[in-house]
């Protein structure tokens, strides 16, 4: 499930009012999320969650569910 915080970051960055995010949602299915805006969304997520992704981690992602998992994994490793 996509967290409310992640949903808010994406909506804010893409200037969207609402969108029905699911684990299987692809970036290309979200209005305004294309190759030109992709990196700005990622940077915004990094800032909000205070994480720094590796290129391969981002390039490997298939959908929003995997992005959420990556953020969760980073957050839990920080707690440890």
């Amino acid at each position: 499930m996509i967290s409310e915080r992640l949903q808010k970051v994406i909506l804010r960055k893409l200037k969207l009012d609402k969108f029905d995010f699911k684990n299987e949602t692809l970036a290309s299915q979200v209005p305004g999320w294309d190759s030109l805006t992709h990196i700005s969304v990622i940077v915004e997520i990094e800032k909000t969650f205070n994480v720094r992704f590796k290129m391969q981690e981002i390039l490997r992602l298939k959908n929003l569910g995997e992005l959420q998992k990556l953020i969760d994994a980073r957050a839990s490793s920080r707690l440890e």
């Binding site: 190759s35 030109l36 992709h38 990196i39 700005s40 990622i42 940077v43 290129m55 981002i58 390039l59």
Partner: peptide, 17 residues
Amino acid sequence: LFQPITFLKRNWGNWGV
């Protein structure tokens, strides 16, 4: 090509793109 460069220059904002 495009995505790796934008990623490496992600701190440059629109200039990176």
